[in-house]
Design a binder for these strands. Structure first.
Lengths: 232, 232
DNA sequence: AGAATAGTGTCTGTCAGACACTATAGA
DNA sequence: TCTATAGTGTCTGACAGACACTATTCT
């Protein structure tokens, strides 16, 4: 009897933390995925994540960051809770609950580290349909993408896909890839000025034409939000 | 040794689901709170919620709805995940994780049921500071309020604080209470027309002056979102 | 010079804010 | 009639979109 009735089964579902780490690389929106080394879904690709270790982690944010650091060797510039998924059918083992985060990083900070690793890869979102994916992670990525897209319409969040130094042209490109349509350079410049988040660096970068002014984030800035969306 | 090292302590934190159920009553934003009948925090006021029962609940949404139904006898018109709180210090018993929802209902659907019950009450948000509150529930309510406020600036979500039939004046009042500033009646009417969510009912209501047109939601509508905020 | 990208100037369009004006109810 | 609330008409202001124009670099 003891083996079939387990008090922990009742109160405590299987609890994990997963993250959708986005970046922009080669003008594509990419997600970090990990080839699973364990059952269930061994050999399929899944999101980086795992169990909370309450001896190490102060909270689930720390779990997300710890797991991302294990796979990428970096702490992402941006991290936010997305949603919780739960249910009987999403994990074959038991009723499961997953806290899902989404995160942004510059690919430059990660890619050289990844080159040595076979089972951790940037996956182009356009290639996701043809990939064997574990659990409901395909749906989760779609939800994270939608949220990021929405956020890009009214906030400066997409800067966190860029390296420390960047140009307006690069920021414009990142935003356009995330929201899936072009924006007016002028509109972006207005927002950059209004946001007061950036400062120019005494440096210019060649870009095929006139040299571009280099910008960086001011120290300890808050992400600017705007009262209107880019039109969609 | 077995008693000090528990595998469940490692993998499975204490997991609960809590909800912040808002309504507007007597021109005040109110939250449903429950006087705790158990330790910890016995006798203090806390949010309605509890453990997942995986034999009954398909997922945590169902848990939230089930617990709200137990306390109010209704299913709220609107329910959305807010966030997850976790940590060592929020529950004295153990590392704990709470999935928090926020929900909206018309107070008319609940208040008569509550009259018979001592330990479930609508609490005016202005009175919250002088109330003994359990756990980190005061912070959670503040976060839920902020999210609702933000959402009211660009969506029609606040209608779900109203009964089936309502007037533009009532909707205007509810929005103003939620966002904490007045809006132009004209602006709201423009949104009502653009949203295509509402239909007029062949009925007028007295309001101290000219009779007001009564509206209701169309069947199975999606909540309209707008590209601009009410100014804040 | 010509191509390419950076950056500016300025007009238009949309929608929220403001507010005067009309409409209709009760006292 | 007076007051209160419902509802309309229309002007202003803020900001995104559009796009022409100038600036600067490389070939």
């Amino acid at each position: 009897m003891k083996s079939t009735y387990d008090i922990n089964q009742f109160n405590n579902p299987l609890f994990t933390v997963d993250s959708v780490l986005f970046t922009i690389k080669d003008d594509r929106l990419m997600v970090l995925m990990v080839k699973r080394a364990n059952e269930p879904f061994l050999g399929r690709w899944g999101l980086p994540g795992g169990f909370v270790d309450s001896n190490i982690d102060d909270n689930t944010d720390m779990t997300a960051l710890r797991k991302l650091k294990e796979k990428t060797n970096i702490t992402p510039a941006y991290l936010e809770q997305l949603q919780v998924n739960s249910g009987h059918n999403r994990d074959p083992r038991a009723f499961s609950v997953t806290v899902i985060y989404y995160a942004l990083t510059a690919h430059q900070l990660v890619s050289s580290y990844l080159e040595t690793i076979e089972d951790v890869q940037w996956i182009d979102l356009h290639q996701l349909n043809s990939l064997p994916v574990a659990f409901d992670h395909k749906d989760i990525i779609a939800a994270a993408r939608k949220r990021l897209q929405q956020k890009a319409l009214y906030s400066m969040t997409p800067v966190y896909c860029l390296d420390e130094l960047f140009t307006i042209g690069q920021l414009k490109s990142v935003i356009e890839i995330i929201i899936g349509k072009t924006i007016q350079r002028k509109s972006l410049i207005r927002r950059i000025e209004a946001s007061n988040m950036f400062e120019t660096v005494d440096k210019k970068i060649k870009s095929g034409g006139r040299l571009a002014q280099v910008y960086k984030l001011k120290d300890n800035v808050e992400i600017a939000h705007f009262e209107r969306n880019f039109s969609n």
